[in-house]
């Protein structure tokens, strides 16, 4: 079908333009919006490969929650003055990264293509994608049988992340002093008062 090729081409262009936009935009808000574009493109490719549940989660969690969190923090803290991308703080950083980019693309692409060609692994070890059931059913069964322990550990991870975020973003009881010397003294005093 020509349709799949067209869908892939359009999605690939959207993904790459969005990714370059994230890296090249001077304003962090523009970077966040470009990130949404890339995430939608990846969701389209998930649908094209039959991963319908992951496509939905990609849009809901990534574009709906994570990028909104990024935008929230950017807006909360005030839009940073646009970064001057013209200056190069480390001498030779840009040439070195371009060499790295060429090596990285060629190595990763070679690795992936070669892996597809020589892959002799057993097929459908966990569960086949094409046994008549929907993608959500197959994924849910694998998730709640073979991978149920990892699923439970994930819930512990999320609790830890929430507690960590609260601890770090909480306003300390004593306002930190402006100069470094007083700031160095402040944490022991604050810790002492918390223990008491």
């Amino acid at each position: 079908m020509i349709v799949e090729t067209v869908v892939f081409a359009v999605a690939a262009v959207v993904i790459l333009v969005g990714a370059v936009g994230v890296v090249a935009a001077r304003n962090p808000v523009h970077s966040a919006l470009m990130l949404v574009m890339t995430l939608f493109g990846v969701a389209v490719l998930f649908v094209a490969q039959g991963a319908h549940f992951l496509a939905a989660v990609q849009v809901i969690v990534y574009a709906g929650a994570i990028v909104v969190l990024f935008l929230f923090v950017i807006m909360l803290l005030g839009v940073d003055t646009a970064e001057n991308l013209g200056t190069e703080p480390l001498a030779g950083q840009r040439p070195a990264t371009s060499v790295f980019a060429v090596l990285s693309v060629s190595l990763l692409a070679l690795l992936g293509v070669r892996a597809v060609q020589v892959s002799t692994g057993a097929r459908s070890v966990t569960a086949s994608l094409e046994d008549g059931r929907s993608n959500v059913e197959v994924l849910a069964e694998a998730l709640f049988t073979d991978y149920v322990f990892a699923f439970e550990v994930t819930s512990v991870l999320l609790v830890i992340a929430v507690v960590g975020a609260v601890v770090m973003a909480r306003r300390p009881r004593r306002e930190p002093a402006d100069d470094e010397a007083a700031a160095a003294e402040a944490p022991p005093a604050g810790a002492g008062s918390e223990a008491a």
């Binding site: 490969q49 039959g50 991963a51 549940f53 992951l54 597809v116 892959s119 692994g121 097929r123 459908s124 070890v125 966990t126 569960a127 086949s128 994608l129 094409e130 993608n135 197959v138 994924l139 694998a142 998730l143 073979d146 991978y147």
Partner: peptide
């Protein structure tokens, strides 16, 4: 999708 296995999506 290459290996027809759901584990990658998990």
């Amino acid at each position: 999708s290459v290996l027809d296995d759901i584990a990658g999506q998990v």
